[in-house]
Amino acid sequence: MANKIKLMIVDDHAVVRKGIINLLEDEENIEIVGEAPDGVEALEGIKELKPTIVLLDLSMPRMTGFEVAKIISQKYSAVRSIIFSMHNNQEYMVQAVENGAMGYLLKDTSKEEILKALDTVANGNKYFPPTVSAMIIDGLLNHKKNSVATNKKETSAIVSTLSKQEKVILNYIVEGLNSQEISEKLNLSVRTVSNHRANILRKTQVKNTAELVRLAVE
C-alpha cells in the first residue's frame, strides 16, 4: 500500500473540523494527524505533526488561508495545502495558487470529491472543483503574470512611500506575524502597530493583508 496521506484540518469552526474528521477517519489511506482553529496554531503544529496535506479554511481570525498557504509553501516544501472554502470564486482560486496552495475545494462538496482532491494533491498535482477548468486557472495566472511585469515599477513606487517603521512592520507581516507579535518585536503597543497596518493598507491601496503580502513579495 502507498504511504498514508497525513492530513491536518484547519478551520475556526469546531463543527466543521469534527465533520471532516468523522467523514474521513475510517479511510485506510488517510491518517488525520491534527487539527487547529486558526493559521497561527496550524503553523506551530506543522513542525511537529509533519502532515502531507493541510486543509485550510479561507476566512479565519489572525491569518487567512491564503497567508497560511504562502508560509507553508515557503517554509515547508514537503507539505501541500488545499484551500477549503464556501466561495465558488475563480479569483479566489487564482489567489490560492499564487499563494502556494495546490488545490481549492468547496465546503459543500461530496466525500468522493474530497478524497479525489487529497489523492490528486498528494501525487503532486493541482486540484480545482469539477466545474472549473484547470486551463481557465492557468490562463488567468498567465494573464496576471504578464500584468505583474508591467506593474513592478508601480509597486516599487508605492512601497517607497512607506515610512521606515512601516517598512519594518510590512516585513514582519510578510513573515506571518500578527499585530501582537509585531508589537513585542518592536516594543510598541498593539494599537500603534494596528494604526501602522491601517496606514500601510491605505498607502498601498489594498483591501486586506493577503493582498498586501502579495504586493510586498512582488
Rank of each mutant, 00 (worst) to 15 (best):
S194E: 14
I173P: 02
S189R: 00
V97P: 01
V148H: 10
V132R: 01
F84N: 00
M135S: 15
I5Q: 03
E211Y: 03
I158Q: 10
N3T: 10
K185M: 13
T131I: 11
N142D: 12
E67I: 13
E211G: 04
S160R: 11
K126Y: 09
L49M: 13
Y127D: 00
L43A: 04
N178G: 15
M63V: 05
D26W: 07
I182M: 00
D11P: 04
Q165R: 14
T155I: 13
E25I: 12
I136M: 14
M63E: 05
K18S: 15
G176P: 06
K111A: 03
D12E: 06
K4V: 05
A134D: 14
R197Y: 10
K203I: 02
E98T: 13
K164R: 07
I53D: 02
N3I: 06
I137P: 09
Y127I: 02
Q165S: 08
Q90P: 13
Q180F: 15
H196V: 03
V159M: 12
S81L: 08
G45E: 09
L215I: 12
L23G: 07
L186I: 10
A36M: 10
L162P: 09
M1C: 10
K75A: 10
K6F: 01
T150Q: 15
M86I: 13
S160Q: 12
L58R: 09
L56A: 08
K111S: 08
D119Y: 06
K18P: 00
P37D: 12
E27A: 02
I5F: 00
N125R: 14
L43T: 06
I114T: 10
I200T: 06
I46W: 05
K6G: 01
M102S: 14
E67W: 01
K47Y: 12
E44R: 09
K107T: 08
V15C: 02
K185H: 13
V121I: 00
L23W: 03
N3H: 13
V121L: 03
V213L: 04
V16W: 03
S194C: 07
V10E: 08
T52I: 05
T131Q: 11
S189D: 07
V159G: 04
K18C: 01
D119W: 05
A210W: 03
D38Q: 08
A157E: 14
K185C: 15
P130I: 04
E35A: 11
M93D: 07
V97L: 11
I137Y: 08
E25A: 09
D138W: 08
L56R: 08
H87P: 01
I169H: 06
L162K: 07
P129V: 00
K207C: 02
N99H: 13
H196Q: 15
A42V: 05
V40W: 00
E35P: 01
V94L: 09
V54K: 08
L105N: 02
T52G: 06
I137G: 11
M102W: 13
E175Y: 07
K167W: 01
A149W: 07
V54C: 03
E48G: 05
F84K: 04
T192W: 00
